[in-house]
Computed example of a mutant assay.
Amino acid sequence: MLNQIGKTALLVMDLQNGIVPHLGENLEQALMPFQKAIKAARKHSIPIIFVRVGFSEGYPEVSTKNKAFSAISKYGAMTVNDHATQIYESVQPEANEPVITKYRVSAFSGSNLEMILRAQQIESLVLSGISTSGVVLSTLREAADKDFEIKVLNDACFDPDPEVHRVLMEKVFPRQADVLTVQSWIAALK
């Protein structure tokens, strides 16, 4: 899993069956930037780590104080074996690409992500995912606090609120990360 391009890894976050439909009616078109980033990472031997949110049966990880996740536990969805928590078919990981299960919004919270990154001597993260104001924001902040170099792929991130996406990409994220398109990231790899 060790890579040759500056110890970088691509994180593909929350592209799972229960979340991808939030991209809207044109799913396959909306997934194209993610697919391009994944294809480029594979071509350049950059490790890809898939991140999903999922819970154990009975939801022992979910506090009644957690507004978002306690609502999920009431409906009996999003356990690790549910169809909703599996990686979406058109962005499936290959055999050597880990799938990390997280129990909170950040990709680091309750997962073994940091252990894998440190074991593989990863110093730089390229972030993609659904949603910009959820997993991408929380992971970016925590990664910055952990001293990772960070890039965010603007067009391989999605938020249901386009204005929130724009503000984060233009005003918030540049304080801690380089924000670029998938195409410009791919061009820089050549």
Rank of each mutant, 00 (worst) to 15 (best):
Ala188Glu: 15
Ala144Lys: 14
Phe69His: 01
Tyr75Thr: 14
Ser106Ala: 04
Ile122Pro: 03
Ser90Gly: 01
Pro162Lys: 14
Arg141Leu: 11
Gly24Ala: 02
Glu114Arg: 04
Phe173Ala: 03
Ser124Pro: 00
Met13Pro: 03
Gly18Phe: 04
Val62Thr: 09
Ala188Asn: 14
Ile87His: 10
Leu31Arg: 03
Pro160Arg: 15
Phe34Gln: 07
Thr181Met: 02
Arg118Lys: 14
Ile49Arg: 01
Leu127Gly: 09
Ile150Trp: 08
Leu137Tyr: 09
Val105His: 11
Glu170Ser: 14
Glu97Gln: 03
Cys157Gln: 09
Glu28Phe: 04
Ile48Leu: 10
Gly24Cys: 00
Glu25Ser: 12
Thr64Met: 07
Ile38Phe: 01
Gln35Leu: 07
Arg141His: 10
Tyr103Thr: 13
Ala143His: 00
Thr181Leu: 11
Ser73Trp: 05
Gln120Glu: 12
Thr79Cys: 08
Pro160Asn: 13
Ile46Met: 02
Glu149Pro: 01
Leu11Pro: 04
Ser45Ala: 11
Ile5Gln: 13
Asn96Arg: 05
His165Leu: 09
Met32Val: 08
Thr132Asn: 03
Val12Thr: 13
Glu142Pro: 10
Phe55His: 11
Lys151Leu: 12
Lys190Asp: 15
Pro33Arg: 03
Pro160Thr: 13
His83Cys: 07
Gly110Pro: 04
Ala9His: 02
Val136Thr: 10
Pro162Glu: 14
Ser133Asn: 14
Tyr59Glu: 07
Tyr59Leu: 11
Ile46Arg: 00
Glu123Tyr: 04
Lys39Gly: 07
Ile130Asn: 08
Glu61Leu: 08
Gln4Glu: 09
Leu27Arg: 13
Val51Gln: 04
Met115Ile: 11
Asp178Glu: 15
Ile100Trp: 01
Phe50Cys: 03
Val105Cys: 13
Lys67Pro: 01
Glu123Ala: 04
Ala30Trp: 03
His83Ala: 12
Glu28Pro: 00
Leu168Val: 10
Phe173Lys: 00
Gly134Ala: 15
Val182Lys: 02
Pro47Asp: 03
Ala40Cys: 05
Ala107Gly: 15
Ile186His: 00
Lys190His: 13
Ser128Lys: 08
Val135Asn: 09
Glu114Lys: 12
Ile49Phe: 00
Phe108Trp: 06
Val126His: 09
Val51Met: 13
Gly18Tyr: 08
Val172Tyr: 11
Lys151Glu: 11
Thr181Ile: 05
Asp155Trp: 09
Met78Asp: 05
Glu28Leu: 14
Ser111Ile: 00
Asn3Asp: 06
Ala84Trp: 03
Asn96Thr: 10
Ile46Leu: 00
Ala84Asn: 14
His44Arg: 06
Ser90Cys: 09
Phe69Lys: 02
Glu57Cys: 01
Ile122Asp: 00
Ser45His: 14
Ala177Tyr: 13
Ser131Leu: 12
Ala187Glu: 15
Arg118Pro: 01
Ala71Arg: 13
Leu2Arg: 15
Val172Gly: 03
Gly134His: 06
Asn154Leu: 06
Tyr59Lys: 04
Met169Arg: 06
Thr181Tyr: 06
Glu25Met: 06
Phe34Ala: 14
Met1Arg: 06
Met169Asn: 15
Ile122Cys: 02
Ile87Glu: 12
Met1Leu: 07
Val135Leu: 08
Leu31Gly: 02
Arg52Ile: 07
Ile116Val: 12
Val126Arg: 02
Ala156Val: 05
Cys157Ala: 13
Pro93Tyr: 02
